[in-house]
Simulated scan of single mutants.
Amino acid sequence: MLQTDSELFNLKRKVQQYEEVLQNTQQYREAWKAETRERIQMILQRMLDATGFGARVEHRADIENLEAMVLTLGQSKSGMYQQVSEDVQRHLIKHNGSLVYQQLFNGKIIVLINYPFIENYGQPRPPKTIAIYRPEELKEPYFLRHVEEFLQEITNWEDYDDDEPNKRIGFQLNFGANGGEAPE
């Protein structure tokens, strides 16, 4: 039985909404390529230059329309190593954390904090999502707040101690609370 126009009104509205969302995805992707990507890079680099913060901005473009601009602190020796033999040491690599502005599948931009972690030393903490923006919503004052939050989070990770029992550094320790082996 064929439906009347009034009965199909809601369905037509949903179809229009779906088509709008698809069109928005294309517009957001075009905006990323035309201006957003470079704008993010410029603002972050300007902040680094003004503060002397020892990070760098990287453009990651492994997959088309899933690109990212990353404020990264890079990698370094953790200061911990395994003595393999008398002359050889295997250093544990520390990933120092990053602030990520990445395109989502729908062209919106997710802002994430990747916490520092040390390879082969427990499990890395999952990234923290700060926000998701349409390209036009990503205003310059937000970048300052994002970088401040990033610095606070990585500072807390680096300054971990047992003075605050609920403060966690983001991974399961390999040792128990008394300094011995963790129970199995």
Rank of each mutant, 00 (worst) to 15 (best):
Q123C: 11
E119Y: 06
F171D: 06
M69Y: 04
P116D: 07
F175P: 00
D49G: 01
I110F: 03
R46E: 14
L44F: 14
Y160V: 13
V147F: 03
P127H: 02
A177I: 12
F150V: 03
L138V: 03
W32Q: 02
S78V: 12
I113Y: 02
Q82W: 08
Q3W: 11
Q27H: 10
N114E: 12
Q83F: 01
F53K: 13
T36I: 11
I109C: 09
R134S: 10
M80C: 10
S6P: 00
L22A: 03
R168V: 10
H146Q: 07
G54H: 14
Q75M: 08
L73I: 05
M42K: 13
P124S: 03
A131Q: 08
W157F: 14
Q83E: 08
F175K: 15
R46S: 09
E158I: 04
R145Q: 05
R60V: 14
N114M: 10
Y28G: 03
L8V: 06
P135R: 01
M69L: 09
Q41F: 10
E58Q: 06
V84Q: 13
V147Y: 11
T129S: 10
L92T: 02
K108Y: 04
T4M: 02
P126E: 02
E64I: 08
L112K: 03
N166Y: 07
N10C: 05
E140V: 14
A31C: 12
L112E: 04
L66P: 00
S76G: 13
S76L: 03
T155C: 11
F171I: 09
L11N: 04
L48S: 09
L99T: 05
E184D: 11
V21L: 10
T25I: 15
T25Q: 12
A177V: 09
V15A: 09
Y18F: 15
D162L: 15
Q41N: 12
N96R: 11
G52T: 05
V70S: 02
N178H: 09
L71I: 08
L138K: 02
R168F: 11
E181H: 11
Q27Y: 12
P116G: 03
G107V: 09
K108E: 10
L8N: 05
V21N: 13
V147C: 00
